[in-house]
Amino acid sequence: MTTDMFDSLADDATLARLHTRLSIDADAAGVLDVAYRTLDTPVGTLLLAATAAGLVRVAYDVEDHTAVLATLATRISPRILRVPRRLDTVARQLDEYFAKKRITFDVPIDLRLADGFRRSVVEQLRSIGYGDRASYAAVAAAVGNPRAVRAVGSACAHNPLPVVIPCHRVVRSDGTAGQYVGGAAAKAALLRLEAA
């Protein structure tokens, strides 16, 4: 039996139509708990995920998007669907950021994946302005625990919303970049983008 290449194209088109219909119906019925999409950027492909409350996760491709979606299914809800349009505003703002046309993000945020000390750190990161840098020690002091420098590093590594919440702006006390969830090259690229 041979397969006609047009049958394959029709199947792809049918699947795309069915997926679009499913996402619209699931969203309208209120049974879609997490919507996601990917976005190609100068620092790699980012996975964007949102709940009804707001942007809940930004993940670099080095984090393994499939594993990130599995974690979201476990920690938030298994009702996850690729619905790019629900994340169009975030995607547009990220594109503007990388084009140097935006210095802050204006999107609703859902911080349910950060709790305790890590959440305090993530919230503090939001106060580090575009083009500015803060040391891990300065962030530790700002959250009221000046000896928790390593814990700040861990909190930055577990920031659920890198780029949007700027953990890349946190550097070592000697000014060197330090570790980053998206990798050293991504952190260096973000710091260069904001310094230019």
Rank of each mutant, 00 (worst) to 15 (best):
T38P: 03
D12A: 11
A52H: 15
I76Q: 06
A73N: 01
P146R: 05
A73C: 05
V107A: 11
A185V: 09
R86W: 01
A49E: 02
T89F: 11
G54C: 05
L47C: 05
A195N: 04
I76H: 07
Q124L: 03
V122T: 09
V83Y: 15
R172F: 12
M1R: 14
L125P: 02
P160W: 07
Q124M: 08
Y97C: 00
D64W: 03
V90D: 00
D132I: 00
V171E: 06
A49H: 01
I109D: 04
G182D: 01
R147N: 12
V62T: 14
D12K: 14
E194A: 00
F98I: 05
L69H: 06
V31I: 15
A177K: 13
R118H: 13
T38G: 06
V90I: 13
A134E: 10
Q93W: 08
P84W: 12
F105W: 02
T66P: 08
I76L: 09
A49I: 00
V149I: 00
Y60K: 08
D11S: 12
Y180M: 06
D27I: 02
N159I: 09
A53M: 09
E123C: 10
S154R: 15
D61F: 08
A26F: 13
D27C: 09
D12R: 15
T66A: 13
L161P: 06
C167N: 10
V139E: 02
V122D: 07
L161C: 04
A186H: 11
A67M: 08
Q93G: 07
A177N: 12
L113N: 04
R172L: 10
L46V: 05
I103R: 12
L87P: 02
A142S: 08
G175I: 06
R126T: 10
S173P: 04
L161W: 09
S127Q: 11
V171S: 00
R17E: 13
P42I: 02
A50G: 07
L69Q: 02
I109L: 14
P160R: 09
R17S: 13
A52R: 15
L72I: 03
R82K: 09
D61P: 05
L18I: 12
G131L: 01
L39T: 10
P78V: 01
G54T: 08
Y60L: 08
V122M: 07
G182I: 04
S23K: 11
A189K: 05
V62R: 10
A50R: 15
A184G: 11
V58E: 00
A52P: 13
V139H: 01
V31H: 14
Y180W: 08
G144R: 11
L161Y: 05
A59L: 03
H65E: 01
F98S: 00
V68T: 01
L55Y: 07
I80W: 03
S173W: 12
A195K: 05
A186N: 09
I24D: 12
S127G: 13
R133Q: 03
R119T: 10
G144Y: 06
S135D: 00
D110F: 07
D174V: 02
T2Q: 15
